[in-house]
Design a protein around this nucleic acid. Structure first.
Lengths: 138, 138
DNA sequence: TCAATCGTAACCACGAGAGTTACGTATTGT
DNA sequence: ACAATACGTAACTCTCGTGGTTACGATTGA
């Protein structure tokens, strides 16, 4: 099992979809690109559909299609749509209230540092679009 | 079970140790601060010992002590000593060589973005010392 | 009607990491 | 010496997150 594959799975299939904007690709086809399962694809793309990035059609000629211009879809949008958090926060659990001042201090310090790092990450992801990814395809 | 507790566990016990530089604190005592287990403490502090941050003594009056001035121990040093990677890379697994160009592109793009974000994180962690953490204790 | 396809629920498989037990070894106080 | 204390470590369990899989209902088009 590949861990943390949601994001790269999404980017990969979006890249392929950007190459064939007029076709509706089935979960089965998209799954093949990642050597994974149609259900996993549906799960993942379902989150993107909620954000209007892709659309799906049921039935005989159904499948998935981009809802936006691939040049307008940033990796940050995908990251957000998936609810990804590459930074593992959890500096201070919600259920374990700090017992001493040091724990609060640690929690706030780590929170600040992680937030800043993630801002940098997202800023970078905003600079790359699906179109740029698709352009690399052979 | 608290996840990702190694780092905050380490910072917490180091903070307490910094308050009592002359005492040797047992794993048992340190574990109590975090409501965890002595073995977990030994495991974690063992990594810090390898980097010369703390020292341990066995036997009757044994325990743990800081090996460095708490004002010299940065959170980044602890982060490194623990081998923590708050950013989950794994953009392209080592065992699954990219099948098409898009996968390589995704892998390198994510790698770059994650690396940059982590540099920012570490830079921040370098600005905070154990002494600063300990100063917050009540 | 029938085949293709998404939408979901439900469950399994696997791995990471903390929690726990157990035991060996080292050190110290008496 | 000897008992008590404490680390070092192995081995196991528990839990959680996540992907994989199966199953089935709903929808669409020929």
């Amino acid at each position: 099992m590949k861990r943390n594959s949601r994001f790269s799975l999404a980017l990969h299939v979006l890249g392929h979809m950007a190459r064939k904007p007029d076709e509706r690709l089935s979960s089965q086809q998209l799954a093949a690109f990642n050597q994974t399962n149609p259900v996993v694809v549906r799960r993942t793309l379902g989150l993107l559909r909620e954000q209007g990035i892709v659309s799906s059609e049921r039935g005989h000629a159904g499948g998935w299609q981009l809802s936006q211009d691939p040049a307008e879809i940033t990796l940050a949008a995908v990251y957000d749509a998936l609810g990804e958090r590459f930074l593992r926060p959890d500096p201070v659990g919600e259920d374990n209230p700090p017992h001493c001042a040091i724990e609060r201090k640690i929690g706030s310090t780590l929170s600040d540092a992680l937030s800043e790092a993630e801002q940098v990450l997202v800023r970078r992801l905003r600079e790359v679009t699906i179109a740029a990814i698709a352009a690399e395809m052979t």
